[in-house]
């Protein structure tokens, strides 16, 4: 089978070009006009904030009991050992009643990589990753959070709950 080549006369080609051009511009303009009235994809960030997932890893918090105001920490140094950037600073003393008491707990949130290893390893659930993420400061030293700034008062310890609903051992 031989291919039949249809020759278009130059005059027809001229008007075909003109018509095609007008049609293409019309189609494009119609599409952009439609987009002009579609909802916008921009998130107006400081005004409207996104809903965070439940396990979002924001700033770190050091938990206290809401009822009696006592810290949950037992001073086992597990978090200090597991911290990859080694940014947790912890000091403990042995109190009168032979119980270990944490006197200093500092974390530089500029160094923290938000891996949540400390939260996972804590045997009593005394640490938590909060949903707070706007932590920029004008001074570098303000990034070092002490016990007062990390404090958060909660009703029950932050124990890791696997998907089947059983608490960790």
């Amino acid at each position: 089978m031989s291919e039949v080549i249809r020759e278009i006369s130059p005059v027809r080609q001229y008007f075909k070009n003109l018509f095609d051009g007008v049609k293409a511009i019309y189609n494009g303009m119609r599409l952009t006009l439609k987009y002009m009235f579609l909802p916008k994809v921009t998130e107006v960030y400081p005004d409207v904030k996104r809903n965070l997932p439940q396990r979002f890893r924001g700033r770190f918090a050091f938990l206290y009991n809401k009822d009696d105001g006592k810290m949950l920490c037992i001073g086992c140094y597990a978090c200090v050992k597991v911290c990859p950037p080694q940014t947790i600073v912890m000091e403990t003393i042995k109190g009168e009643d032979k119980k270990i008491k944490t006197t200093r707990y500092e974390i530089n949130i500029g160094e923290c990589i938000s891996c949540a290893n400390c939260v996972e390893v804590c045997p009593v659930g005394a640490l938590e990753m909060t949903h707070e993420y706007e932590t920029a400061t004008f001074n570098q030293m303000d990034l070092v959070y002490g016990m007062d700034k990390l404090a958060k008062y909660v009703e029950k310890p932050n124990m890791y709950m696997p998907p089947d609903g059983k608490a960790k051992k």
Binding site: T32, Y35, M36, F37, P39, K40, V41, T42, V44
Partner: peptide, 13 residues
């Protein structure tokens, strides 16, 4: 503003 609306953005606001 208008060019942003065409591109489904908000533009300076």
């Amino acid at each position: 503003r208008l060019i942003a609306f065409v591109q489904a953005r908000l533009g300076p606001n």
